[in-house]
Nucleic acid binder design. Structure first.
Length: 550
RNA sequence: GCGGAUAUGAUCUAGUGGUUAUGAUAGUGGCUUCCCAAGCCACUUGCUCGGGUUCAAAUCCCGGUAUCCGCACCA
């Protein structure tokens, strides 16, 4: 017998084609799951609902970037270093430890290893041969002189590396938002808990770029009196957006607004408000790139509170990182009301001298000189390929000019709502799973919201009378042509067909019966009430569309 | 990765060192023409993988894999 709701949900998910273990005929592989026919559709609907919030309500744009990401990108973003743990094994205790976690504070990892200071916390054996564990999947691009790459651990970097182009696309106005829905990959040590912790997972991320001096949101005023459900690690509280920002509970309007958008999205997707809350990250659990982060947590009877969405203020961390490692301009411009005329001192390199002296380095030095702050009567040094080199004073001139400045440059800050689609999808299944007794028999149904249900309408002839079948097939075809996902079924009894639809979360069933032949009306049955309305055939499409519209 | 438990059709489950592996659900075809999993008939699908012990292994032993629980990990 199934133990708990997780077992029951996963049982139903597998039996009905929502979720299968991947490669099962080869023994399966931990951390990988397939979405079956209904699961794929449910996921698509969930993603499209998400799009309606971010692309329509919030007017973001969507892009799509490769899942295979150059080493250099993830080196710059900090993932190569921060994602790596130096690990040692104790052969006696058969345990693995992070070196960082078992050495004393204030000692560097390198020193600790050199001086044999790495000891097993259990048996005090001196541990040797540390090795790096990186949670990213690595790969190579091309053969021969190949380039190192990783499967991306988040979709965000693709947006950051396109920033300068996207900023132009947004016609150089802030704030603007860019989203991406796609796969992310983390080579988890031991994934468990079904689709809660996958090695390949679906994420929906939005990066909204703000002027750091102005993290207000244009839509904030429309929603400022709405209530957020917060949890401060001790008690739950309800607070309006306006009050939360005023009192500093939430740092800025932008964060608060995206928290609200997240809350609305999840409620629309069928999350139970009582199984939902926002929790603020404490300082020591913040990711390496974040300065403030709120998680939307959803409650699972099996797993407790699950982190399903993270809404982080990443500040200018990522754009600065990529700018520093590539030299690409990732600034935005804050325009002055009136252009200013300012005196500017500039270094003008003399390439006639620089060239012969520095050869192939001359070009780089030229760029460095041009971007340098000018100080009078000081020697000029540049860092080139890790070396500090003096530039002789005859290689440049300092020129004073008047320049018109129309604004000041700054690196935008990023607010990032990041959604774990698979986790949300599991919680929707669990929270909408219901059992009732019908004639002493256990009766299962998924009370999925019509917006995301994989099948919207079951279409049945009451009996397999040819006249009814003919009409039913036409009704079914018309619904599908109108963009409504249907399931046509004439097998078994009518009760059995209703039951099949209830179990996969189909909100409505249209039945063609004997009265249809007389007055061209059909019954529309509601999944949750099992009540039936009669409607004219020509009104069905409009009627259903009304019920499933977001 | 460490320790423990488990593994039988699509799903759940009985089972014993010895013929053709139990039952239910689901599914398919037919009868029934039925508005909430009705009934009847027929049919489909299985012992996690590899090795060992044995005359004989789904059953006992070892190993792999997966799942669940605990520890560690989860930026």
């Amino acid at each position: 017998m199934p133990q708990d709701i997780y077992d029951k949900v996963m049982m139903l998910a597998k039996r009905r084609g929502f979720i299968y273990p991947s490669f099962e005929i080869y023994g399966g592989c931990a951390g990988f799951y397939d979405y079956g026919p209904l699961g794929s559709r449910l996921k698509q609907n969930l993603e499209n609902l998400w799009r309606s919030f971010y692309l329509l309500k919030d007017n973001c744009v969507e892009i799509s970037t490769p899942t295979i990401t150059l080493f250099e990108v993830l080196k710059a973003s900090g993932h190569v270093d921060e994602f790596t743990d130096l690990t040692v094994d104790c052969k006696k205790c058969k345990q693995s430890y992070k070196v960082e976690g078992i050495i004393g504070e204030g000692i560097s990892v390198e020193k600790a290893i050199k001086n044999n200071k790495v000891k097993c916390p259990t048996c005090k054996t001196i541990l040797k041969n540390p090795y790096n564990v990186n949670l990213m999947f690595s790969t190579k691009i091309g053969i021969g002189q190949s380039r190192d790459a990783f499967l991306r651990p988040e979709t965000a970097q693709g947006i950051f590396t396109d920033f300068h182009l996207l900023y132009r696309h947004a016609r150089e106005k802030l704030p603007f938002g860019v989203v991406q829905i796609g796969k992310g990959y983390r080579n988890e040590v031991s994934p468990r808990q079904g689709i809660i912790r996958l090695r390949e997972f679906s994420m929906a991320e939005a990066e909204i770029f703000f002027d750091p001096n102005d993290k207000t949101h244009p839509n904030f005023k429309d929603v400022k009196d709405e209530v957020l459900f917060l949890f401060d690690n001790e008690k739950e509280m309800e607070i309006t957006l306006e009050k939360a920002v005023q009192t500093g509970v939430i740092n800025n309007q932008a964060l608060a607004y995206y928290m609200y958008l997240t809350q609305e999205f999840l409620m629309t997707a069928g999350i139970n408000p009582e199984k939902f809350r926002f929790r603020k990250h404490s300082d020591d659990e913040l990711a390496h790139y974040a300065v403030e982060c709120w998680d939307a947590e959803l409650f699972s009877e099996r797993f407790g509170w699950i982190e399903c969405v993270g809404i982080a203020d990443r500040s200018a961390y990522d754009l600065i990182s990529h700018m520093e490692s590539t030299g690409t301009d990732m600034y935005a411009l804050r325009k002055y009301d009136e252009p200013k005329i300012v005196d500017v001192k500039k270094i003008v390199p003399d390439m006639g001298k620089l060239g012969p002296l520095f050869k192939d380095k001359a070009g780089k030095i030229k760029t460095l000189l041009e971007n340098m702050d000018v100080k009078d009567n000081e020697k000029i040094f540049v860092d080139i390929d890790g070396k500090t080199v003096e530039v002789p004073s005859n290689c440049y001139k300092i020129v004073e000019t008047k320049e018109k400045q129309i604004g000041e440059k700054f690196v935008p800050h990023v607010i990032e709502p990041s959604y774990g689609i698979d986790r949300i999808l599991y919680c929707i299944l669990e929270q909408n799973y219901a059992e009732v007794k019908k004639k002493d028999e256990e009766y299962r149904l998924l009370k999925l919201k019509p917006e995301i249900a994989p099948i919207k309408v079951g279409v049945f002839p009451l009996v397999s009378d040819e006249r009814l079948v003919k009409i039913a097939k036409i009704v079914d075809k018309n619904l599908r042509n109108a963009g409504i996902a249907t399931y046509y079924d004439e097998g078994g009894t009518i009760g059995r067909r209703y039951a099949r639809m209830d179990e996969i979360g189909t909100p409505f069933c249209v039945t063609i019966d004997h009265d249809t032949l007389k007055d061209k009306s059909v019954t529309i049955r509601d999944r949750d009430t099992t009540k039936q309305d009669r409607e004219k055939i020509e009104d069905i499409i409009r009627h259903i569309k009304n019920k499933i519209s977001c």
